[in-house]
Write a protein that binds this DNA or RNA. Sequence first.
DNA 1: CAACATATAGCGATATATCGCAGAACCTTT
DNA 2: AAAGGTTCTGCGATATATCGCTATATGTTG
Lengths: 187, 187
Amino acid sequence: MHGSHNDDGRCRNPHAHGAPHGHAHTFPFGMAAHGFGAFGAQRARRGDIRDAVLRLLSEQPMHGYQIIQELSARSGGTWSPSAGSVYPTLQLLADEGLIIAEETGGKKVFSLTEAGVAAVAATADQPAPWAEVAAGDPSIAGYREAAGKLMHAVFQLGKNGSADQRAAATEVLADARKKLYAILAED
Amino acid sequence: MHGSHNDDGRCRNPHAHGAPHGHAHTFPFGMAAHGFGAFGAQRARRGDIRDAVLRLLSEQPMHGYQIIQELSARSGGTWSPSAGSVYPTLQLLADEGLIIAEETGGKKVFSLTEAGVAAVAATADQPAPWAEVAAGDPSIAGYREAAGKLMHAVFQLGKNGSADQRAAATEVLADARKKLYAILAED
DNA sequence: CAACATATAGCGATATATCGCAGAACCTTT
DNA sequence: AAAGGTTCTGCGATATATCGCTATATGTTG
């Protein structure tokens, strides 16, 4: 399925947009900067986004950002499709005539066309794309929660702690890191 | 200075845009989601963004995103002004005639007007806004680094670790959290 | 059938813009 | 002068869109 079309090639033209794209520095802390968001997150398989978007729109008309959120919620936060995946897919789908956009205020709400409904019906027997990723290793959840709670404590101390407390906490953090690397080392 | 005018009120009109704004769930991990980015980051003082933007543009014409990055870099990552602060400020400044936008391709490059140059000259004796935030408590840096390195280890394990390793790491994380809360408790 | 080459989907980063909320600064009153 | 309320600024979240890199999946060849 879905291996057809491509009609226009979409973004295949480099078209020289002379942007420097320096991007060296990156700030000293990291965290929010480079995908710490969810390490358990696998990269979606081929065409998953297409199917997922179609399936989601068959339930209810939505706009792009809402699709991202909904998909993230349904997979338990495991699969957070990026804007760079969703929006091009929506345009592609619209070009193919499977969905139509309706601009309401600042938002674009997408709904299935008749062709779109037919396309969803064709894959109705298959399980929902987000269900597959959601059914991952449950042991990850515990680790995630522990890490999340620790982060909360780290944040609390960083924000409301005194210099002395921060110094003590720094040692705790360094110690935890050492232990973690020790665990990583033992194969 | 700069506390004058307000000419139009800018965004003071609610103008009923009937958006639901549900926003309940938020994913189970957090981290990147709710300002974990940098706890040492103070909220900028009144009019800091205005001054900073003007000062930055006096050195070199830039576009919005570049200003955000540059400001973040100059303050050592301590002060990362948000898009929600920069873009409205740029429009305000443009409305006041201190800067002008020049659309080049997909980017809007802003430069100072003569009035803008004069405004910068008026505050030339004061230290740069980003310098003040940069010179913060140095003891925070150590804590930040320790937290950052720990996060790196946490991430490594979450991504490349086995189930056994993850289980062991979860205990380490829980233990570290307990110690952190103990430090927080002792006033 | 396995190793390699190729195509392409997904993603992070880049870029811009607006809204509602939280909090700091300011002003007024007691 | 302290207490209180008001105002306005800065910020996170929301929303959309594109580019180039990467990893995956498919197809081809030995």
